[in-house]
Amino acid sequence: MVNKIRISSFIKPLLPLLAVIAAVLIWYVYFNKTDKELIKEQLYQFRTDVSKYAGEGMAQSILKCKALEKLFDKTCHVNINVDMFAGSFSPEEISSKAMYCRSHCASAAVNFYNIKITIDGDDAEASLTASLDGASRDGKRFNEYRELVFSFKKIEGKWLIYKIDIHQIIEK
């Protein structure tokens, strides 16, 4: 009992200070994000929006594709050796292409590994290894790996994608 009184009387005056420290920590963790963290967040958002999990409905697909638009600059250049997906596209076009791909897949889980980010002023580049694991509507399974390089531009405090390079990890 004596000990309890002693501890509480010791902590009580420190409570405001502890509250301030906690508030600063929360602010630091949640709001004071570095550019690298912000870029990583964009990448994770991209990964979530392009992935299609089993049982996902049409409404969710539309919402995800709509959310994808917010990650891109007015024009985004895509370098890939598939004619249909190569070229310069607006966010809306990217969204509709994502919708088209989703309609052909029963499931498609995208994952990113080995992310390396380099920042140069308002420009940044993120290179990573991506895996695409899933199944088509006719039940054919696929498991592909590619090397991706995302180019970002900081516009009004947001890192937006303006270029994506997709190529094989091992090129014949």
Binding site: N111, N114, T129, S131, Y145, I169, I170
Partner: peptide, 10 residues
């Protein structure tokens, strides 16, 4: 040994 992806090496 080449690093391919997550836990895949070649």
């Amino acid at each position: 040994i080449i690093y391919y992806a997550d836990k895949v090496l070649l």
